[in-house]
C-alpha cells in the first residue's frame, strides 16, 4: 500500500474559491428577485451545481484525487439523476 504524502493546496487557492462562492451566492440571490418565469429554478440550480462543483473539486480535494474517485462520484450522481428522472416518467404524464 502506498503511503500518500497528500497534496498541499495553497491557502490562496482556497481563498479565491471562497470569494467566487460568495459572488455566486450574491448572484443567485439577485437573479432570484427577477422574474424569469420557469427559468428561475434552472438558473438557481445551475449556480448551485457550479458552487457545489467548486466545493467538491477544491475544498474536498477531488481535483487532486485519483481518477477512480471522480468516476465513482459520477456514478453516484448518475444514479441519483436516474432516480429523479425516471420518476418523472410517471409524474409528467399523469
Amino acid at each position: 500500500m502506498d503511503l500518500e504524502a497528500g497534496h498541499i493546496v495553497p491557502y490562496r487557492t482556497f481563498i479565491f474559491v471562497w470569494i467566487t462562492l460568495m459572488v455566486l451566492t450574491l448572484t443567485t440571490v439577485l437573479v432570484s428577485r427577477m422574474d424569469l418565469g420557469p427559468l428561475n429554478i434552472w438558473v438557481a440550480l445551475g449556480i448551485a451545481c457550479f458552487k457545489s462543483g467548486l466545493v467538491i473539486f477544491y475544498f474536498m480535494h477531488m481535483q487532486y484525487e485519483r481518477l477512480i474517485f471522480r468516476a465513482y462520484l459520477f456514478v453516484a450522481l448518475l444514479i441519483l439523476a436516474i432516480f429523479i428522472g425516471l420518476t418523472f416518467f410517471d409524474v409528467l404524464y399523469r
Binding site: F89, D90, Y93, R94
Partner: peptide
Amino acid sequence: MSDMAVFV
C-alpha cells in the same frame, strides 16, 4: 401511475 411510466 401514468401509462407512459407503465410502458417505460
